[in-house]
Design a protein around this nucleic acid. Sequence first.
DNA 1: CGTTTCAATATGTATATACATAATCGCCGT
DNA 2: ACGGCGATTATGTATATACATATTGAAACG
Lengths: 248, 248
Amino acid sequence: MSLVEIDDIEGGEILSLHQRILSDIREKILSGAWAPGHRIPFEHELTAHYNCSRMTVNKALSQLAKAGLIERRRRSGSFVRQPQSQAAVLELHDIRIEVEALGLPYHYERLERVKRRSGAEDRALLGLSAPGPVLALEGLHFAGERPFALEQRLINLSAVAEAGEEEFLDIAPGPWLIGRVPWSEAEHRIRAMAADETIADALDIDVGAPCLVVERRTWSAEHPVTHVRFVYPAESHTLVARFTPSQG
Amino acid sequence: MSLVEIDDIEGGEILSLHQRILSDIREKILSGAWAPGHRIPFEHELTAHYNCSRMTVNKALSQLAKAGLIERRRRSGSFVRQPQSQAAVLELHDIRIEVEALGLPYHYERLERVKRRSGAEDRALLGLSAPGPVLALEGLHFAGERPFALEQRLINLSAVAEAGEEEFLDIAPGPWLIGRVPWSEAEHRIRAMAADETIADALDIDVGAPCLVVERRTWSAEHPVTHVRFVYPAESHTLVARFTPSQG
DNA sequence: CGTTTCAATATGTATATACATAATCGCCGT
DNA sequence: ACGGCGATTATGTATATACATATTGAAACG
């Protein structure tokens, strides 16, 4: 397979040259080093840089083009595209990735954290029949300095006890959970809603402004794990779900 | 570019060999001719069938694999994969069924019907590169006496000529199309938006009220078929998508 | 001065070839 | 029968090469 050892970002991984080129360029774009509109090196320059054939470079670039990260123009070269805020509904979306795909710095900020015995409302949201300990979290995802999404989350501590020890001060609970709890089932509810005062305040928009609300319940082996509600200002967000492939 | 003329569904389009192979196989799989688990021809067989090099076939198959339609196993061949749990969001959209599930009488009412040559905006929505005839429809779906959703639709008459003869007075174009045109690909965009005057008027809600907007583009064998936008008043509608993780 | 033409250039697609890798089948010896 | 070993096979990745196509910029022309 003609493999090449590469010192990758985290711990030496073995990547094919093709993948190496792909991830190099992707990294440059997502990190913002190459801003939208920037002309990326010509195929023949990359060919020289990686010391490989043009076919290999071409394959990588074609793939990036199909993924929508770059745009290729004959005779002119290849350019970093203006990103569109998109997320596949079908994947458990990671807001960090969405934000970074926009070329903006991401951070998370906790607003509230309460441990309590589940009330009726908590149980309805989680789908629990018996009372038990839950962790209620509220936090803001930022794109640059602007709030990008408000997150309101319940975690069933009977299913994920370790979560009770976490502060979630500046790490979002989503990625944390995904790394720890294998989910077996999820349900999304998507709707529009007018911002009430709490939401308007958090997201810095007007009361009554339209918002997109995505709620997700997740189960692991029949046990409810978490319920989360993401609230996005309407202008900032479109969900995209595509069926049958366009690959990336 | 070594182009090949293909007699395609409507009006000869020019496809590269690579794309021809891709869509051929995709069609076979999506139509059900090759069921999940079926072993698709070996690369060398396709090479012979299309009279091209293995690289070309390989590229197409790799793409299908990345798209998740097929699975490739060394020494064994390539197999059609079990379909992914994607149907969730897709199936949601027969509005009659949604309404009837609520126990309310359903009917559809046409507001507008215009046949025209596609302008720039039409082409952008449909994803067409060249101008051609389109049918623009606007209609209302009712639940009982109340408007349930506003539908704004474009149909590419180059792909579905018969649609030009239909009046769509009280039958919705969605079900009509589904019965006639096998779709091979669809894209959903979901967002929230404030009602403008047109929408508020049609749906009998206030200007500025939040709405859920679901847009769908559908292709059949690489041909754009239709673009449709459903606008729901926020209170009336929640999308639900349930799924389990699919490996791969 | 504007327009037409043409060559240069970067990408797009295809070829033939080569070797690596993973999985399977069948052979073999115990 | 059983387990291991090598040959076979299909895919995976890469090479060098060739020619097509779109677009740009500059030269030639009226």
